[in-house]
Design a protein around this nucleic acid. Structure first.
Length: 622
RNA sequence: GCCCCGGUGGCUCAGUGGGUAGAGCGGCAGCCUCGUAAGCUGUUGGUCGCGGGUUCAAAUCCCGCCCGGGGCUCCA
């Protein structure tokens, strides 16, 4: 509870309008009082009867000193950023007035819940203005575990720049964003200019309509359910990213999802990471659910025998899941979750030179995964680089090198001091249809954790040394990858294009529609032929008109739609509706197979996640 | 976390000066056997998010909670 006490000659206030439903009724619209103490009062979350009693006592003491016997309790929200709920606040403010009255004072109260105007004349003596803060007595264990880094982040001041291709570091407000609209949106988002959008994010509607994923009311918010089509898309992406990271040279490992809160290295690291955790109790121990693969991999590296010859040492894990208890209001669809799938790749490096070289390789790897795998265009994502001033002063060339690799200007955030465990961090950020930015790929140079976890390698001279650790998620969370694919598709649709999924991720790549039952057998044979070439093909055998089935295939974003009837059976030539290019082309089965194979190339393949015949499929949504 | 908006059949939504719930789509049944973006008819289906309160009577009013969306300026 906060109270600003003003010893006043007079106060006059007027009710303007009700601010909340709970506002107190009042017959008097205007009130003025003389020779009194005005108590601007605000009730904070956690205040209770006992807080009120102590406040009343403190007020009494002050009033006695001032020799005042008249007070006005004036509800005033602005004294705190941590307000109690209105109903509770009203209750306690009434109670406060009663308590003060019970101590023998004349108590007036300004109605709660109104926007009011007031004029006040405050006496000039030294004790006329007093501020009181009454905090509730601590209840055992009531305090939430908030990491130090979270608190630090709120205090940290950042400087924002754009680093252009010529290596100029330009303060954001002076940069000409012409031709860099996406970067402007990104900068606006990061520096938190207010946005006025009021719609359900497009990808949320799509993820449900396309039966990819959905909210699961039976779980904690931000923990989703994945329908067969979504599970397919997700596991294809997982496989793709994993293959790419192994190709780059990482060793794939697996580590537990929960860790002991009391483990010395872990508890210190927790305090350096800006996220809240899920807590799991088992017997009398507390565990937290991992929010990345760091713990498992670091503990593994701690116990390993590592020579400088083994560096850079690359370890990879697909964390399914990583858990972060994000604030309730932050959760949205596939963009921000509490349980998500994150590829996490660490690299132990001997020194900064090796780290920079490695970072560059991973930068290229990440870019390839976004453009080749997610099929994002380079205009779809923006580069952000964040570093401490000191790092930039010593490694400016390297930072400029990253921007050159990107091929367009990047947003820069500079910190005066190092509050996190890293000195440099870069990200690729996707900007969605509501102007919101989300980090996809990212990498960091960690200068703290090797020491914290006791991770060492032996150098040429036989000396134990601490390596630098890079933390990279080459794609970002898999869910977020799907979010960006869907948002991109919607963006395309808004520009008059055909929304679609990358062909290799499409649950149905080819749909066959027999004109009648008569051709079902023939259609099945075609499907067998196509399926044998690792193409997901299905058959819409439902008793609907051809037109209707084509309509639904379009709606489902099926890439190739083939109507099968007598003409096809006779000639062997298929009329293939190429949805993305809005045309109908004539192809033999073999040519159709080649068309699809030439586009998916060597991407991972998994079979159709549903019965081949649509008549045998349930509907999960809609 | 706080504020605002929303939650009615599987989906999209209508229905609030309190009087016992509707439509379209889907599902099911039937007709139609169909040639590239919604064929026709019938029928099924609802603890009106959950809990409490007010009332003779609550989807509707009040309180709390849960879930979704948006915002974090304002607000005692």
């Amino acid at each position: 509870m906060k109270i600003l006490l003003l010893h006043s000659d007079f106060i006059k206030y007027e009710l303007v309008r009700k601010e909340i439903d709970l506002a107190e009724e009042s017959d008097v619209k205007e009130e003025s009082l003389k020779d009194l103490a005005v108590l601007f009062t605000c009730i904070e979350a956690g205040d209770h009867d006992e807080t009120v009693s102590r406040a009343a006592e403190e007020v009494k003491e002050t009033l006695n000193n001032l020799k005042v016997d008249r007070v006005l309790v004036y509800p005033y929200a602005h004294l705190s950023g941590n307000l109690a709920k209105p109903a509770e606040a009203l209750k306690l403010i009434r109670l406060l007035a009663e308590r003060i009255r019970a101590l023998g004072f004349e108590v007036h109260r300004a109605p709660f819940g109104w926007n009011k105007s007031f004029s006040i004349s405050v006496k000039g003596h030294p004790l006329a203005e007093q501020y009181m803060s009454i905090t509730p007595a601590k209840e055992e264990g009531a305090e939430e575990k908030v990491p130090e880094a979270l608190k630090a982040e709120e205090k940290q001041e950042s400087k924002w720049f754009i680093l252009d291709l010529d290596g100029r570091l330009i303060p954001v407000e002076k940069f000409d964003f012409t031709g860099h609209e996406n970067l402007r949106k990104f900068a606006d988002y990061e520096i938190r200019k207010s946005r006025v959008v009021d719609m359900v994010p497009p990808h949320v509607e799509l993820m449900r309509r396309l039966e990819i994923a959905d909210y699961e009311p039976g779980s904690d918010p931000g923990n989703l359910r994945w329908y067969p089509k979504g599970a397919l898309i997700k596991s294809l992406l997982e496989e793709y990213v994993t293959d790419k990271v192994i190709e780059y040279g990482a060793m794939k490992v697996e580590t537990p999802v929960m860790y002991d809160f009391e483990h010395p290295s872990l508890s210190r690291y927790l305090n350096r990471f800006p996220a809240r955790q899920y807590i799991v109790k088992s017997d009398d121990k507390e565990f937290f659910l991992r929010f990345s693969a760091c713990f498992g991999q670091f503990l593994m590296a701690h116990d390993a025998q590592i020579s400088y010859r083994n560096l850079p040492l690359r370890m990879y894990e697909l964390t399914k899941y990583s858990f972060r208890r994000e604030k309730r209001g932050e959760l949205v669809g596939l963009r921000r979750l509490r349980a998500f799938t994150m590829p996490d790749c660490h690299a132990l490096c001997s020194d900064l030179e090796q780290a920079k070289e490695e970072l560059l390789r991973r930068f290229r790897l990440s870019k390839q995964i976004l453009t080749d795998g997610l099929e994002l265009d380079e205009e779809d994502f923006e580069l952000a680089i964040r570093f401490t001033r000191d790092f930039y002063e010593k490694n400016g060339d390297f930072v400029r090198r990253l921007v050159k690799e990107m091929g367009k200007p990047a947003l820069i955030e500079e910190w005066e001091d190092r509050i996190f465990y890293f000195t440099l961090k870069w990200e690729f950020n996707f900007i969605d249809n509501l102007g919101k930015a989300s980090a996809l790929s990212t990498d960091q140079i960690d200068v703290e954790n090797a020491e914290r976890y006791g991770i060492t390698y032996v150098d040429k001279d036989g000396e134990k040394r601490y390596p630098l650790i890079l933390h990279c998620s080459p794609s970002g969370a898999i869910e977020r990858g799907i979010y960006s694919i869907l948002e991109k598709a919607y963006k395309k649709q808004m520009k008059g294009g055909v929304p679609s999924l990358p062909l290799w991720l499409s649950p149905t790549q080819v749909r066959l529609i027999p004109v009648s039952d008569e051709y079902l057998d023939y259609t099945e044979k075609l499907a067998d032929q196509i399926e044998a070439e690792k193409i997901r093909v299905d058959i819409d055998d439902r008793e609907l008109t051809v037109q209707r089935r084509v309509y639904e295939a379009e709606h489902e974003w099926v890439n190739y739609i083939v109507v099968v009837g007598g003409r096809e059976k006779a000639s062997g030539v298929l009329k293939v509706r190429d949805r993305v290019n809005r045309r109908i082309i004539e192809l033999t089965v073999q040519e159709l197979i080649e068309e699809v194979r030439s586009k998916v190339k060597d991407k991972p393949f998994k079979p159709l996640p549903l019965p081949r015949r649509l008549s045998a499929r349930p509907r999960f949504f809609g």
